[in-house]
């Protein structure tokens, strides 16, 4: 038996929307600690890892040790788009061998003594569990900046090139691209905004390095401004995947690992 409720369906929709940028379907792993979703995109460029802890939900109950539900993200997103922002979202699942396995999605809107209700059932599919495990890495470099700023730069670069080059230095980040017709060059410096800390850029780069990334992926990560207006990028070097993270309350959040492009 599984039941979880959320008063902000918009946030869950944003999470599913972010995942569906790269992944068609994935296993939702419900445990007593909360919900975890992880998947590698078909091009093996980005690994998406989402945690929504039990305390992140307004109500959360999972009686099973671990419940693995294979979900088509596109269909789930369609359902979530039907939910009004002022509704209470409820996800539920009952283990019943006799019936088709499905995840129930319900939206309730308070109307005084009564409630308006919309109910959906999402048919589940079997997906082989992932074999890859995210290794524990000791990140030596870190950068924190406004998500909107990363989005703006990635969107601009995407107009010119499929590849963006990030050069992390001790006191600056250079983001650039070049094509046959033009080049673009952005410089981002650490800065503290005393009136609005969320505008600040902080960097702690111990070992400067340069990495090329696929622009489209960085742009899609930066769409997560609804999740967190700040993005934290953790790195080691050009050979190790970079981590882009957007944290939420109660130890929850979305985290991406992205592989760089290497020059032979």
């Amino acid at each position: 038996m599984l039941e979880c409720k959320l008063q902000e369906p918009k946030v869950f929709r944003s999470v599913v929307e972010a995942m569906s940028e790269h992944i068609k379907e994935c296993n939702f792993e419900f445990t007593r600690e909360g919900l975890k979703m992880q998947a590698l995109d078909s091009s093996h460029i980005a690994f998406t890892f989402v945690t929504l802890s039990a305390t992140w939900w307004n109500e959360y109950r999972c009686d099973d040790e671990a419940l693995l539900l294979g979900v088509n993200l596109e269909t789930l997103l369609k359902i979530l788009k039907c939910g009004p922002d002022n509704s209470l979202l409820a996800l539920s699942y009952e283990n019943d061998d006799d019936e088709v396995s499905e995840l129930k999605v319900k939206f309730e809107v308070d109307r005084g003594e009564k409630k308006d209700v919309a109910e959906f059932a999402l048919k589940l599919t079997h997906i082989d569990p992932m074999e890859e495990e995210v290794p524990e890495l000791t990140w030596t470099n870190e950068l924190e900046m406004p998500t909107q700023e990363l989005f703006r730069i990635a969107r601009d670069i995407s107009l010119f090139s499929e590849i963006m080059v990030l050069e992390f230095d001790k006191d600056k980040l250079r983001i650039s691209c070049s094509s046959k017709e033009s080049t673009a060059d952005y410089l981002v410096h650490p800065f503290e905004d005393s009136t609005n800390a969320s505008n600040s850029v902080r960097m702690n780069i111990e070992a400067p390095f340069k990495v090329s990334l696929t622009t489209h992926y960085v742009l899609s990560f930066a769409k997560n401004k609804n999740i967190n207006e700040r993005v934290v990028i953790k790195m080691i070097d050009a050979e190790t995947p970079l981590m882009f993270s957007f944290s939420m309350k109660e130890g929850s959040g979305i985290c991406y690992y992205i592989a760089g492009r290497l020059t032979d």
Partner: peptide, 14 residues
């Protein structure tokens, strides 16, 4: 053009 690294390979290696 730089070659795209394969994330699956990276995680299998570690």
């Amino acid at each position: 053009t730089p070659i795209q690294n394969d994330l699956a390979e990276f995680y299998c290696m570690v």
